[in-house]
Nucleic acid binder design. Structure first.
Length: 883
RNA sequence: GCCGCUGUGGUGAAAUUGGUAUACACGCAGCACUCAAAAUGCUGUGAGCGCAAGCUCGUGUCGGUUCGAGUCCGACCAGCGGCACCA
């Protein structure tokens, strides 16, 4: 294809102009209303910019440019989320410091982004690996610790065998590492956690106040997974003590009763309590350890637990896996509603990480319990009967009856005859009154594991001091509780009871069997910079490469001056991206993460676009951190409780075969190449034209040509106008189309229907190329084209004799009256089928239309010999004869 | 299994929300320009029947509501995405 305009010359010219005149800078103190457009800042990978990035950046660039023309002080910032594994792995292979790699990649990304003509405010660019930036990431950590929301605990973590790194629950996909796809196993490890579960309710409720795509809201809701129900206490007795569970029996006996315990379960179906015929606890449940002397088949039980523990997440979650379990012989539980003794099982289908790690099994009304009961010969007691005439069937030979919305209670003592819904409330109240239960809420959301055993991340600003611990325990020796020694298999922390190992207000950790006080680094010690290392290789023992650097690890305690040890874990790569959008408001501040006046002006983000894959990771995390900073007062109250007013998501750009783009498939499209061959304007428009913005679309190399042809046509039409070669039509003819185009393009940018916006622009230029164009109409058209193809438009705008950049022009208003055509094509239908069309005045009335229609020979021949029963007239559209 | 989304030409897809199905673009075919090709321009392009005017069918399948259904209702089928033994 030979070109009529030189995209290289034009695009570099205007990119230089924008950059040197700094036209896209957001103004800190402006009388104008602000508008904050945000895209997810990229990780500067060695592969360079991906065409998928461009989809998101182009979309919001179009919005940013339109908002500027609408009179807003727009902030459209960019930065780099530069901590992360690829640079570190590259360092392991090559010995090149991640810092060096990062700097080089940022240069490449910067060049690529500028070559696209995005209207970023480059002066606000932030980089998460810059100590001046991560000083504040560390500061946030200290504040989290200060407020009791960061704690250290020994927990089973998801350990990726190939990355040699601990993963957050959110980073494990189908039992595999989200990053490398490798297998993940459970390991016990001391980790830093953030108590995101404290914010679960607010993260859920506040979704009502924001404008997110519905599917994003739903995904967040499901991830938080709130469910309401009740906690119920079951007393557990050992067989030897069986006869003592009534007070009078106990007194009558002289024998020492064996140890009893309580087993608390969480259930969403307290109505089915009378149908609970056995209990099941998770293999990790502490009850087993506590009552191990009472379990007569302990050997077998321990064997079962050992097998269960060895199973990876992948095996444990395998679909349709047959349930396994084992009865804890010697133990019985007492159902608090009817005092029936029921057996207790251990089984790995019960998860320690949800609820209380124990369940009451109701085989008649829960399919999982039903399967388990069938296999292990447990009784099935029906307590709900479908109402007569409801059409619901119950067949307890084949499956459980799980219907909640329908049915009445039976076999349930005083609750018989109640509806299921009513019973849930009443039985919960009854349990609470008797002190054996209470209403309870549970979440699927887990606390957020915030430690990584890696080099290339923010160091955690914590040190451990033995001397401070000794001083503290000596002071409080009189009250002498002594640190409870956590056992090797300590009860696991779960969401509802996550706690640090805290004692007397001083948190401690165990290092080589000795207690050390946890000392948060004082603020004036920040930033705690990453030291240089010789080897980036992570260790199999699971320690960060930082642990091998004596100069870093060994330090002095800032409080007592004694020998102290540094935390060597680093933060996950989400740490820097949690709050970067706040920093843009004031990127160079050294006294605070951002000045409050600037935050009050720019926040919240008005429109945030990013990938669906970040819905349960970055989006949820950053909402949490924002809420925390807002509670803290670091973000002004006037900014509101939510960081992002609006959140949308773009569809992935796939390879031409419809498969994901990847190096191994060899179907990666390099944006540099497209920019070089066809220009940035073409690439921008194609990214928007290729299909609906929120859907995944395959790249079509041939399709790009069509967009370039469109821009060529624009160029040529305006060249004719400029040289007056084109027949100049005095406005009128194009006017209705122009105003319809303004209307369509304006609305489509707001609803992200960029593909139809471009189609409308194409229709206009096709018409203009055929009919001719006057200067005023042409200029209006350039304004609405400018967000899509800014370089080309600036050039034409200048050639038309304008001194000022088109970005200073106001966005065109459309006039509904002018958008109307004077004449329309009226469709004539017979029995709803199109038979003829006629050109009529737009405001034609029914009588006139009917008369005209009945004059037409085609209509007459179709109606011959038939009787018109009814006439339906839709003004401006059609007339339909019913015969 | 649960939640969500999507099924329209050879292809990417439009359709003012119940009113001309296939806009816009790619591809393909024919013609023009050319020694030739590329590029460009014009014309055609859902399927079937017909020399033709025209007729019939047609938006995953089956059924319903309506003067009129891609759009609304009911029952299915297929594909994609998320969650998944969550008590």
């Amino acid at each position: 294809m030979t070109f009529k305009y030189d995209h290289k010359k034009i695009e570099t010219k205007w990119q230089k102009y924008w950059l040197t005149k700094n036209v896209f800078a957001a103004v800190d103190k402006s009388a104008k209303p602000k508008y904050y457009c945000l895209i997810e800042f990229p990780y500067p990978s060695g592969d360079g910019l991906h065409v998928g990035h461009l989809r998101s950046y182009t979309a919001l660039d179009i919005l940013a440019r339109k908002r500027r023309m609408q009179g807003y002080n727009v902030m459209y910032p960019i930065g780099f989320d530069a901590f992360g594994l690829p640079s570190e792995n590259y360092a392991i292979k090559t010995g090149i410091h991640p810092q060096t790699t990062t700097e080089n990649n940022i240069k490449i990304f910067t060049r690529q982004l500028q070559a696209m003509g995005f209207s970023f405010d480059w002066q606000r660019a932030v980089t998460t690996t810059d100590p001046k930036y991560y000083k504040w990431t560390q500061w946030i950590f200290l504040k989290m610790y200060e407020k009791g929301l960061a704690y250290k605990a020994k927990i089973p973590i998801n350990w990726c065998l190939s990355c040699k790194i601990g993963l957050a629950n959110e980073e494990v996909v189908n039992g595999r590492c989200e990053r490398c796809g490798g297998p993940v196993e459970k390991r016990q490890k001391e980790q830093w956690l953030f108590k995101i579960t404290d914010y679960a309710d607010r993260l859920l409720e506040d979704l009502d106040s924001v404008d997110y795509l519905e599917r994003i809201k739903i995904q967040q809701q499901n991830w938080i997974g709130r469910s309401e129900g009740a906690e119920v206490n079951f007393q557990v007795i050992a067989n030897g003590a069986k006869q003592f569970h009534k007070e009078e029996d106990k007194i009558a006996s002289s024998a020492v009763p064996p140890r009893n315990d309580n087993l608390t379960v969480f259930t969403t179906r307290p109505d089915t309590l009378f149908g609970a015929t056995f209990m099941v606890i998770a293999p990790e449940h502490p009850l087993i350890l506590n009552l191990k002397n009472q379990i007569s088949n302990l050997k077998e039980v321990e064997k079962y637990i050992a097998v269960a523990k060895k199973k990876s997440d992948l095996e444990r979650t395998e679909v349709n896996k047959e349930k396994t379990g084992l009865e804890l012989k010697g133990l019985m539980a007492i159902n608090p509603v009817n005092n029936k003794e029921i057996p207790v099982f251990v089984a790995d289908y019960v998860l320690i990480s949800y609820g209380t790690g124990a369940i009451m099994a109701v085989p008649a009304h829960d399919q999982r319990d039903f399967e388990f009961a069938k296999k292990y010969g447990q009784p099935v007691t029906q307590v709900i009967e479908p109402t007569n005439g409801s059409g619901k069937k119950i067949d307890l030979k084949t499956e459980a009856y799980e219907e909640v919305n329908e049915g009445v209670m039976i076999n349930s003592g005083r609750f018989n005859g109640l509806s299921v819904g009513k019973c849930i409330n009443e039985i919960t109240a009854w349990l609470a009154k008797r002190g054996v239960g209470r209403p309870a809420v549970n979440y699927k959301l887990r606390d957020w594991i915030f430690s990584r055993q890696r080099y290339w991340g923010e160091p955690i600003p914590i040190i451990y001091c033995r001397k401070c611990w000794e001083a503290k325990t000596q002071n409080s020796k009189s009250s002498a509780k002594g640190g409870p020694q956590p056992e090797a298999d300590a009860p696991l922390v779960h969401a509802s009871s996550g706690k640090s190992q805290s004692q007397e207000g001083v948190d401690y950790v165990l290092i080589n069997g000795q207690e050390y006080a946890i000392i948060p680094l004082p603020e004036n010690y920040l930033p705690l910079e990453l030291p240089k290392v010789k080897s980036y290789e992570p260790t199999d023992s699971g320690e960060s490469p930082l642990a091998a650097i004596a100069d870093f690890v060994n330090t002095r305690c800032p409080f007592c001056g004694g020998q102290a040890i540094r935390e060597t874990d680093t933060m996950p790569n989400w740490a820097g991206s949690n709050w970067y959008f706040l920093r843009y408001a004031d990127p160079d501040n050294n006294k605070a993460l951002a000045d409050k006046k600037n935050l009050a002006y720019f926040l919240p983000v008005d429109w945030y676009n990013g990938g669906m894959e970040h819905t349960t990771l970055h989006l949820l995390y950053s909402r949490f951190i924002y809420k925390f900073l807002w509670d803290l007062g670091a973000v002004p109250e006037s900014c509101g409780p939510e960081p992002y007013q609006k959140r949308t998501s773009h569809g992935m750009v796939l390879g031409s075969g419809g498969e994901k783009m990847s190096k191994s498939r060899g179907n990666v499209v390099n944006p540099d190449q497209v920019v070089a061959e066809l220009g940035a304007d073409t690439l921008r428009c194609y990214e928007m034209f290729m299909g609906p913005f929120d859907q995944a679309i395959p790249w079509d190399t041939k399709g790009v040509i069509g967009v370039r042809r469109f821009l060529e046509k624009v160029w040529q039409t305006f060249q004719s106008l400029i040289s007056q070669k084109l027949s100049v039509v005095k406005g009128e003819k194009l006017m209705p189309l122009l105003h319809r185009t303004i209307k369509k393009v304006s609305a489509d940018i707001e609803s992200q229907d960029y593909n139809t916006a471009i189609s409308a622009l194409m229709i206009f230029i096709n018409q203009a190329a055929a009919d001719g164009l006057d200067k005023k109409t042409g200029e209006t058209f350039l304004k609405i084209l400018s967000p899509f193809a800014p370089h080309l438009v600036e050039e034409l705008w200048q050639q038309l004799g304008h001194k000022r950049s088109i970005i200073q022009e106001p966005w065109p208003e459309f006039d509904e009256a002018l958008a109307q055509n004077k004449e329309i094509e009226l469709v004539i239908q017979i029995n709803g089928r199109v038979k003829d069309k006629m050109i009529v005045p737009a405001d034609i009335n029914e009588q006139r239309a009917e008369k005209l229609a009945l004059d037409r020979p085609k209509v007459l021949s179709q109606l011959a010999g038939k009787q018109i029963k009814n006439v339906i007239f839709i003004p401006g559209r059609l007339i339909n004869f019913v015969v």
